[in-house]
Design a protein around this nucleic acid. Structure first.
Lengths: 208, 208
DNA sequence: TGCTTCACTGACCGCTCGTTCAGCGATCTG
DNA sequence: CAGATCGCTGAACGAGCGGTCAGTGAAGCA
């Protein structure tokens, strides 16, 4: 007997297609202007149907974010496990992030929207509880890698969390710029730019 | 005779106090949740009064953003004129940004909200037309400084606009983190962190 | 085939928010 | 001092939202 009944499979499918529609609509209109009506139309269901699978709008957005963030984290973890040196690790994390955002532009806006909670204090509290921790643990993952490299004296000792923040937000800005351009330079070129910048800075005379 | 009549002075004062109230409310509640009612209460006027000075909510937000952005640009320009070397210029721009955002936390949220247009396509087009150019010219200003330094061989030659983006967004992330902490390290320490990171990177063995 | 079930629908409700405008009182004018 | 002027007010309005639920019809069952 299969581990999932037919009903469960159908349910799973509905949940997934509603979440994908949510990402597309938020990508098009932004977080605040994405209405339940439009999400329902995008998913090809009635507005009421969404409420069979999600308690309310907040839960829909929250679960959608968690799902996408989970996918990104998987990619990053894989990239970190694959490489050994700090240079390769940084480069591969950046690449994973760029690839993921290019393939999921929809998610990118969701990601940016949720870093900055909006709405009533109550909504803010809820977003802080659920979405920010995921973002923080994303940053923390890179911070841990950097911290390890510092202990091994591969890189200079600085506040690892701040360094991770700087790297992630800086590279996010470059990725955002890329997505806005009609023709961007080669993906590898931008990754090289970021990695070199972080590792060697820009002062003339730094080695390599 | 004075260049401004009494009525003009009163009008100027009203406009300014409404804009300041707008910044405070957006800082407290976020862009989407800042209502005209609350802005009016904060400014100590009736809701209708705001419409005597601004066509609609969009214009209010837009003008408020322009005003604050203008103040920030003034600070940055001043910092750039004051210093000569590239290292000092970068450090002073970062300091100006940090000081401005610390003193105007309200504006910081407005700044973050407007980088990411939301709302109907029409609203988005409008924000793109007015707010994004200001942000871009902010970035461009730093890019020009970096570009000049590259011509003088003070720093390595890379895409100056991307570099400026990386620096500004990276440092913004650190500033955001600072504002969220109860007790942050010394302001100078964080500025030194950013400047050193950019100029020398983090690889062990880079000079200085 | 008639009955039951239930996932799904979309018209509807209550509410909030941006926007308007008739009216009010302070100030000016002759 | 009467009348005109005008900046300002806030109750009222309409649009549009999230959320609800009585109704529908296809599928399963007897």
């Amino acid at each position: 007997m299969p581990s999932k009944s037919k009903e469960e499979v159908v349910q799973e499918f509905r949940v997934q297609s509603i979440q994908e529609a949510t990402m597309r609509v938020i990508a098009r209109k932004g977080m605040a202007a994405a209405t339940m009506q439009e999400i329902a139309e995008e998913a090809g269901v009635a507005k009421g149907t969404i409420y069979l699978y999600f308690r309310d709008r907040d839960e829909l957005v929250e679960k959608t974010f968690e799902r996408a963030m989970g996918l990104l984290m998987e990619q990053v973890d894989e990239a970190l496990d694959r490489e050994t040196g700090i240079e390769e690790k940084i480069r591969s994390v950046m690449s994973a992030q760029l690839a993921f955002f290019s393939a999921n532009r929809e998610f990118f806006r969701l990601y940016l929207s949720l870093r900055m909670p909006e709405g009533s204090p109550q909504q803010q509290r809820r977003q802080k509880r659920t979405c920010q921790p995921q973002y923080r643990s994303h940053v923390q993952k890179l911070a841990d890698v950097l911290s390890t490299a510092m202990e091994r004296d591969e890189i200079r000792r600085v506040d690892p969390y701040r360094l991770a923040l700087f790297i992630i937000e800086g590279s996010t800005a470059v990725i955002l710029e890329r997505l806005g351009e009609e023709t961007s330079p080669d993906e590898r070129a931008d990754m090289e730019f970021i990695t070199t910048l972080i590792l060697d800075g820009i002062r003339k005379g730094s080695k390599s």
